[in-house]
Write a protein that binds this DNA or RNA. Structure first.
Lengths: 167, 167
DNA sequence: CTACTTTATTATCTTTTGTTAACGATCGAA
DNA sequence: TTCGATCGTTAACAAAAGATAATAAAGTAG
């Protein structure tokens, strides 16, 4: 299922009940995965939703998934009722703040860490991501090619093996 | 002037009246600049401000600057008054949404573009950034070293010169 | 189980980046 | 003006990443 598409205005904000979604771009005809969301998370091409501009990104289900969502027009309808304005403002704020925290950490990692460091930290965190998405998606997520990630893995696991031998 | 410091909780959200601020990390004793803000922009280590957690980033004035700001405690005070809750919710939402748009574009550029492409696009955009910050800050911002940026500039300007000769 | 497709690894080669150090250029203070 | 510090460029080398192709491993459908 496609939730958002490049070049089209994103008219919904969704909440994943179960399943998983992938955020990606198409560059030179190749898909580059950028982010992954699982149950109990909000998804949206939020910039497009807010600014009413064509989306930069695509969002697509990776498996059979269930979501609930509200549309931009239904949000506008709701906001005609004074009594719900406050709650919707709060709701919008919470979604935005949730997304900010995701983005901030991600930008930090790109500026301060090498791809190898990013992958090491992900390994140490034991994040679900490692189990739930294929390695070539993960490579994109880290900002490198699948081939390069494979080499990084080789380096890391060789080093771990040496450590084990020494102990 | 220091607006936010690594390891300390950020208690303010500021708005720049004039001047400029630099966001940076310290890694292995070296400062890595990550973002820059100028007049009429909001600044905050917003994740720290929201979550009441130690800041990951530092924010510091690059020149004499004037800002107005509100503190977390004054925000809490304000929110005791029912009549301002709505406006503050909206205000918080607008700040969060503003920051999201900055971050989203930045993450996209890291995943889909090479450092050279990022610099080329910045050149083409004619962004003020190019005039207002030194090149070694810009290098950090692009995720590379100053030496590497210098090489990229050489490549680009050599290519431009060749194009000019041909025409 | 086999054949086919997809994903991961490995190899080779080229390009780019990081690191370190040297060299100019620029700017401000003495 | 001169000294010193800072910033940008360049050079040389090592390390890492991209591109491409071949191979191995894993997963799927028949």
């Amino acid at each position: 299922m496609k939730f958002a598409a490049h070049g089209k205005i994103c008219n919904e904000v969704g909440f994943i009940l179960n399943g998983s979604f992938r955020f990606f771009f198409v560059k030179d005809g190749i898909e580059i995965s950028n982010y992954f969301s699982f149950q109990n998370e909000f998804i949206s091409s939020y910039r497009s939703f807010l600014k009413r501009e064509p989306s930069l990104i695509n969002i697509e289900a990776m498996e059979d998934s269930q979501i609930i969502y509200f549309s931009y027009t239904s949000l506008q309808e709701l906001l005609k009722d004074e009594r719900v304005v406050l709650k919707m403002e709060r709701f919008g704020r919470m979604i935005a703040e949730y997304l900010i925290c995701c983005y901030e950490e991600r930008v930090v990692s790109f500026v301060t860490q090498t791809p190898e460091e990013r992958y090491r930290l992900l390994l140490e965190s034991g994040d679900d991501l490692l189990q739930r998405i294929p390695q070539y998606y993960l490579a994109n997520y880290l900002g490198i090619t699948p081939v390069s990630l494979s080499r990084i893995r080789k380096r890391i696991f060789a080093a771990m093996k040496r450590q084990k031998m020494a102990s």
